[in-house]
Write a protein that binds this DNA or RNA. Sequence first.
DNA 1: GGATTTATAAACATCC
DNA 2: CGGATGTTTATAAATC
Length: 681
Amino acid sequence: MMQESGTETKSNGSAIQNGASGGNHLLECSLREVRSNGETPSVEIGAADLAHLQQQQALQVARQLLLQQQQQQQQQQQQVSGLKSPKRNEKQPALQVPVSVAMMTPQVITPQQMQQILQQQVLTPQQLQVLLQQQQALMLQQQQLQEFYKKQQEQLQLQLLQQQHAGKQPKEPQQQQVATQQLAFQQQLLQMQQLQQQHLLSLQRQGLLTIQPGQPTLPLQPLAQGMIPTELQQLWKEVTGSHTAEEAASNNHSSLDLSTTCVSSSAPSKTSLIINPHASTNGQLSVHTPKRESLSHEEHSHSHPLYGHGVCKWPGCEAVCEDFQSFLKHLNSEHALDDRSTAQCRVQMQVVQQLELQLAKDKERLQAMMTHLHVKSTEPKAAPQPLNLVSSVTLSKTASEASPQSLPHTPTTPTAPITPVTQGPSVITTTSMHNVGPIRRRYSDKYNVPISSADIAQNQEFYKNAEVRPPFTYASLIRQAILESPEKQLTLNEIYNWFTRMFAYFRRNAATWKNAVRHNLSLHKCFVRVENVKGAVWTVDELEFQKRRPQKISGNPSLIKNIQTSHTYCTPLNAALQASMAENSIPLYTTASMGNPTLGNLATVMREELNGAMEHTNSNGSDSSPGRSPMQAMHPVHVKEEPLDPDENEGPLSLVTTANHSPDFDHDRDYEDEPVNEDIE
DNA sequence: GGATTTATAAACATCC
DNA sequence: CGGATGTTTATAAATC
């Protein structure tokens, strides 16, 4: 309506003439480099090497875990479909690119196939569905683990480089950090194992699983690995219950032609959608993926993932095979392509997915831990406490919505067939759904507290590679981009670049999000355009940014009310949560959440929230609580999780504290001569 | 159900 | 003219 005159209100009230915005190239180096290099110029080789060794050990373990799971899964795939079309292209040494294999496997079995399986199996569809849903999340988790492993390797190399360069001088913090990371990593792995145990437990609780006492569960290996077969073992017992357990395998005559079934009965049942959303949106992809059969028996004759210690490791089998030959025979006879194997394979896939989901979250936590420790050791005065606290609330809340799009709903269709580019590992299955154009997802950052540098930094590695939509608003991201810049100002194009650099998600649909960026820049008063010598740059008016959603929070009654209501909302789960937390600190899938494909994460979310709340009640100000893990990137659940932090009641804290973030902006109000303050704020 | 916030789309203006 | 950059409006969705 007032097109012409609108400009004056906002733009260039006064130009801060800092002509050279040249420092922006610093942005080009990854934050990780910045962080690790920044104040640690040198390394003591001996000690660092030690830590480095330890870290490598941890990596080794993780790698084995990955390989085993992946190979197991892959092998099953081969059983299911590979037998029919035994063309293989031995791709990569599994170590190098383990991810790609895992990426493809979920597409091997189409939802339709699964549907058939479901119809023929013994378990009720509901039961199976629940199981599958859980396992899907596990698969995601595995992917994340792989990703994480790669990152660890990168970090390792980086550190090695640093050591070589900076070489001589003794360097305490660095070594400390390495050791810390390694420790944290190991803890993460341990935690994964616990989680898996919990998963099993929960299955038992659901009655979906019955562990007979006499039944040998696979010896739990030091890491999470052992859990899955155990769990599956039980699953198989259920799945194959009517087939007289182990012996039904004689029906080699597969009734399912997995390699050809595709579109026939594509009525996308709920399960099919959930199981393989990618395939359900684009059926072809699920069919033509012949490359997966990279495993030849010869290749893995020595260490067949399904064979170990003279026992068939097919989930739920445990048949004794003296030598590898007999194992192969057993494999071909007992685990041929049939309904049962297919179902088992599918379940295994789901298990892995679930693991991967969990991993993603734990990875975030780990990063948060590392970041926290690092920041503290190097920057003791910055008082990041309140800042992190606030933003973590925001993030964990918003994050919980980031991935629902990746899971159940949003039956949207990809605007373009997913380009298999995805150089970032392992994301295809998770992300293939958000490549969708116009998903309007509201990232309920209702508190809309600005994300802190730490928040993004902690997860940036994830978002850099995973095409997961970041759970931040455009405004928050823009602000973050600008604040990260040395001059605290960026041109539009530089903002674009930041987006694409930091988030894989923004490497596509450029027109859309760029428009959104511009829109946000113009719309929000907190973004101030400053005329520059060489053009215009955008800066952030921090105060305006804080003012954006003022009365909502700032300790007013409504907030408290919200918290309380959310408490009651969660109440049904609280009992179970606390009970389980007492033992293992990990919540489970309660009956209420069983139907939800994302229950695992729900549980975790809840635990996080609860932990956070409890922590804060217990420890005020003690720095010994890094556990307030800022963000779980992949909470697919749509929970109305309000921050249970009692601290929130003290309201203003959350808003005000961030203001100290950049004192530079105090003078920004200079050119805030517009008649702003009265209209909305 | 209305208000608010955010995302998306699009029209339009301006500048280079 | 065309693209980049801004501004504005409209609409939908989510949330409060």
